[in-house]
Each structure stands twice: as C-alpha cells, then as structure tokens.
Design a protein around this nucleic acid. Structure first.
Lengths: 218, 218
DNA sequence: TCAGCCGCTCTTGTATACAAAAGCGTCCGC
DNA sequence: GCGGACGCTTTTGTATACAAGAGCGGCTGA
C-alpha cells in the first residue's frame, strides 16, 4: 500500500526497493522477475521496469549471465556515496543560493524550524527529524533548478544509510545538523553561493564521519 | 548495424539516440513507441526500455500526459552539463591518480600518443581525435574504479556537444587538449590526486569556453 | 460565431505467450 | 574416481494481445 502511485511499475519499484532496504533481501540474493511479480501482485512487465531502475541506481548488480542480485555495499562504497553527495549537493546549494526566491527561503526556514521542533521534546522524534531533514534537502535541490542534478542525487540519497546513521545519532549530532541547516539558510539569505556550497559540503562530510564513528565494523 | 550488441533493446537505444543526436528528431518531436518500433524493426517492448533509459538520461522529457518528446537543450543546460562533468570527472581523475597501475598509466600514454598522432598530419584527423579522446576519458573513468561515477558520467558525455565543439576547434585547440592530457598523465605519474583533479577540471572548463566561443548564438 | 460537452482515436500501461540462452546436474568414458 | 560433454530446467528477452486513459475533433446549443 505504501505511497502507491496507481502505476504498477511504481509500486513494484517501491516494494522491491523496500525489500532491499529493509534487509529482507540481503546482498547476493537473486532477484527473479517472476518471483517478485508474485510478491508484488503484478505481472513481470512492470517488475522488469522496476528492476532496470534499481540496477541503474546500483541497488542491484547483474551477474555475467544477466541475472540480477542484490548489491553489497562495503565501507568504500559508502564513503564514495558521501563524497559524491558532498560535491553534487554542494553544487546544488551554490545554485540554490543564486536562485532562491523569498518564498523558497521562507519554506526552508519553516522546514528547519520543524526540524528543530522535532528535537525539542524530552525524547527526540527521530522519524520526524528524518522526514523534515529529507524535505529540507529536497527543497534545496529543487531550488537549484537542475533536473540532472536532481536525478543524480536521487540515486545517491540512500535511505538505509541515513536511517542507520540517524538512529545512532545522539541528540547532539541531530542538533548539530539542524544548526548547520541554519547556517545554510544564512548563506542563502546572503546569496553567497560559495558559502552555501562550503556549508553543504561540510554538512555532508560530517554526516559521513558520524556514520563511520557509529559503524560497528570500522 | 552500428556497434550492435545482439540485444534488441540495445539496438533500439543506440538507434533512437542516434536519431536524436543526428538531429533527425528535433526537440519537441514526439517519440511514439510503435512508430519507433517500426523504424528499428523490433517490438514495442525493447523500444520501451530504450525510451525509459533515454528519459533517465534527459534526452527526452515526459509531457504531463505521459507522452515522450525529444528534449531541448539551451545554453544553460550545456553549461550545467560541463560544470557537472568538471566536478565529477575531476573527482574521477583524483581517484584514478591514487589507483592507477603502471599498466594503466602506459595505456593512457599510448592513447594520448595516438591522439597526438591524429593531429600530426597536414590535415588533422578529427574523427580519430574524437575516438581517442573519448577512449582517454573512459580509461580515466575506468581507473577511478567507481561504478556510480561511471554511470553518472555516461549520461553527461553528450556526444553531440563534443562533436559540435570539436568540428569547430582549430587545430590549436585540439593540440591544447592533447597537451592537457599530457599534463594529466604527469599528475598520474606523480600520484598527485589534487593535481590530477585540477588539471581535469581545467581541461573540461576550457572545453566549455571553446564551445561557447564557437557557438553561433552566444 | 463561439463555448462547452461528448465520443472517438491514438498512445501508453499491463498482462500473457513464446523464444532463446544460461546454469546445473547427470551420465558416460577414460 | 575424475573430467568433460550433453540435455534438462530455470530465467531472462522479445513479441503480441488487451485494457485504460489522454487528447483531439466535431457537434450542439445558445
């Protein structure tokens, strides 16, 4: 049921992706079209489209013989993903700084306020933090007004990493994140592209650091 | 016939992409599945896959109603493409500098020698230059050993731009390119990642400049 | 003459049927 | 007992058939 566009291929994509992210399909598990079609409850055709997309986004890799299996991510992969995000999202922030409308800036402020609120209670509302955090970054990417950038980043924002990282975060770290967003908003208000780029890059590099620190096997 | 993997969907992709790049399908032209299937000589199924991919690579855009049309690129698009290439290929060069094997370095040297050779004759062999240039960059990307980077760059290396740029190049400019490759090889030999990144970024930024200068409508 | 609605056609989305090829186990020969 | 080759099974790749929805044109009524 999920977010469910009415398109079968979208549902298939979301559901299969969900299986991978939840760990129900661990790395190396074969992704067979017919089996997945049965699970999702659609035919092979939309499943095929979903798998093609998952392959393009590196959730799955193709064996020499053309079979798909769930991809395995090692530490280097994660580091590379963060490095790319830092570059590309830094670039997005720079573009956004030049283009952001007053309304767009207000939206960012409101979003980050919600983010602060999620941390204000005795027990931080991590789920809400994650949702607002995601929204904040999406707003920045949207304001950058580059379709290419948006699609590239879409395949990098790997929910599992974010989730794993955030659940390990101390409230301190979450606060730091929110404060960095504030700094970013300042850079936007000043229309300083370089500043915005630097803040965003730093923000994401710190996230990698936090992830590594929390990671069980260094 | 082209490069022709034996897969129908690959042929469809190559052929339709060719139509767009050659200008046979100008921006705004609808891409109807059945018509293309007839042209390529396969069924709608592989054509659909090809179109999905072309859409993902921003060769085509989807109208509100779900129809696909050939995408239009304006000057800003081209600038953005070059900016992204400069960042990502710079990153690839940095990674390559750290990883390149002696054999890999030799291959690069040989490739760039061929590139020089293509310019040595009275009349520069532009086609060969382009082929070797492409190969050079592919070697670097390969040496960077990042599948993500490779797929991202694949959707940025827009043949039409390269071709349009290069046909306008004076031999001087082509030479400059080859010399920049030499510089890059030096950086690789020294295993200096930052140097390599800077050279590559400069290389691509200059290409944008050359493109702009040669562009009819500034 | 023009606005709005209805219905038809054309296009995409999904399901199914069929073809080809890859993997795997088995069986034979040495 | 072991290597290699054959053939069966499983899985992907392609074609076709069918369903649903969007767009467009014509028609009607003022």
């Amino acid at each position: 049921m999920t977010t469910a566009s009415d398109k079968a291929s979208e549902r298939a994509y979301a559901e299969i992706r969900g299986l991978i992210l939840a760990g129900d399909a661990s790395p190396g598990t074969p992704l067979r079209e017919e089996a997945l079609a049965d699970i999702v409850g659609v035919s092979r055709t939309p499943v095929r489209e979903a798998l093609k997309r998952l392959e393009a986004e590196h959730y799955a890799i193709r064996t020499p013989g053309g079979r798909l299996v769930v991809a395995a991510w090692d530490v280097d992969d994660v580091a590379e993903i963060f490095a790319l995000r830092a570059m590309l999202e830094g670039h997005a922030a720079a573009r956004a700084a030049r283009r952001l409308s007053p309304d767009g800036l207000s939206a960012l402020k409101a979003c980050n306020q919600a983010l602060h609120d999620a941390l204000a209670a005795d027990e931080p509302d991590v789920a809400r933090f994650l949702a607002e955090n995601r929204r904040f970054h999406d707003l920045v990417i949207g304001a950058s007004a580059s379709a290419r950038l948006a699609t590239m980043l879409a395949s990098l924002v790997e929910q599992p990493i974010v989730r794993r990282t955030a659940t390990r975060y101390a409230r301190d770290d979450l606060m730091r994140s929110a404060n960095e967003h504030d700094q970013l908003i300042q850079a936007f208000a000043a229309r300083d592209a370089d500043w915005a780029r630097a803040v965003m890059a730093a923000h994401i590099h710190r996230a990698l650091h936090a992830f590594r620190a929390a990671s069980p096997s260094k």
